[in-house]
Simulated assay, not measured.
Amino acid sequence: MEIKLRQETEQDHKSVFQVIQKAFENEEYSDHKEQFLVERLRKSNTFIPELSIVAEVDNKIVGHILLTKLEIENDIDTYESLALAPVSVLPEFQGKGVGSKLILYSHEVAKELGYKSIILLGHEKYYPRFGYELTNKYGIEMPFDVPAENCMVAVLAKNGLSGVRGKVIYPDAFFE
């Protein structure tokens, strides 16, 4: 199975909406509204077109990942980072490497664009294989009460989080 990765286009929005909806349909820890989050993020000032990526198999969109800007803030400084939310794969393509390819490719694009870290809330057994570590190891806190083992960060550049500590500030689009 050949998986092609590319930047999402406006013509892909309907297909991506459906992929996200189906991907999270039976997820226990989901509000089943991730597709609407993606629509809001696309319209926000945190959207980075190059980091909205689709996976295609036989010219059909089977997966999508979105990285958007967020900040880590303390009393002294504000640091730019990225949020990974969501990564979506059609159920019939899950477990076949589509999600892994999307995550690794998005990391490469983010590095090329000069970003130093990515923050996510996710499954504690899945994301560490892609270099994600607990945020509390770096003195980074989430703005809401969630289990520490689900709060993770990937460092994209050498010393990418050197001196960075504080609270994650998610864009308003995450809460609308």
Score class of each variant (00 low, 15 high):
residue 3 I to E: 05
residue 6 R to T: 07
residue 9 T to Y: 08
residue 9 T to R: 14
residue 10 E to L: 13
residue 13 H to I: 14
residue 13 H to E: 14
residue 15 S to E: 15
residue 15 S to H: 14
residue 16 V to Y: 13
residue 17 F to I: 08
residue 20 I to A: 06
residue 21 Q to R: 15
residue 21 Q to C: 08
residue 24 F to P: 01
residue 25 E to I: 00
residue 27 E to R: 11
residue 30 S to L: 02
residue 32 H to K: 14
residue 35 Q to Y: 15
residue 37 L to C: 04
residue 38 V to R: 04
residue 39 E to N: 13
residue 39 E to M: 12
residue 40 R to M: 05
residue 41 L to V: 13
residue 42 R to K: 15
residue 42 R to V: 12
residue 44 S to P: 00
residue 45 N to G: 13
residue 45 N to L: 09
residue 48 I to C: 06
residue 48 I to H: 06
residue 48 I to V: 12
residue 49 P to Q: 10
residue 49 P to Y: 08
residue 54 V to M: 09
residue 54 V to H: 09
residue 56 E to N: 09
residue 57 V to R: 01
residue 60 K to N: 12
residue 61 I to Y: 05
residue 63 G to A: 12
residue 65 I to Q: 03
residue 68 T to M: 04
residue 70 L to Q: 03
residue 72 I to T: 05
residue 72 I to N: 02
residue 73 E to Q: 13
residue 73 E to P: 00
residue 80 E to S: 11
residue 82 L to E: 05
residue 83 A to C: 13
residue 84 L to D: 02
residue 85 A to Y: 08
residue 86 P to G: 11
residue 88 S to V: 08
residue 91 P to W: 03
residue 91 P to N: 07
residue 92 E to N: 07
residue 92 E to L: 02
residue 92 E to Q: 07
residue 93 F to V: 08
residue 101 K to D: 00
residue 101 K to T: 01
residue 104 L to N: 14
residue 104 L to A: 13
residue 104 L to V: 14
residue 105 Y to G: 06
residue 105 Y to H: 15
residue 105 Y to Q: 10
residue 109 V to C: 10
residue 109 V to S: 09
residue 111 K to D: 08
residue 113 L to V: 05
residue 113 L to K: 14
residue 114 G to K: 12
residue 126 Y to W: 09
residue 129 R to G: 00
residue 130 F to E: 01
residue 133 E to G: 04
residue 134 L to A: 05
residue 136 N to I: 06
residue 136 N to W: 01
residue 137 K to P: 01
residue 138 Y to T: 05
residue 142 M to P: 03
residue 148 A to E: 07
residue 151 C to T: 03
residue 153 V to I: 11
residue 153 V to Q: 01
residue 156 L to M: 09
residue 157 A to E: 15
residue 159 N to C: 03
residue 159 N to Q: 13
residue 159 N to I: 02
residue 160 G to Q: 08
residue 161 L to Q: 04
residue 162 S to T: 14
residue 163 G to S: 12
residue 166 G to Y: 12
residue 175 F to Q: 00
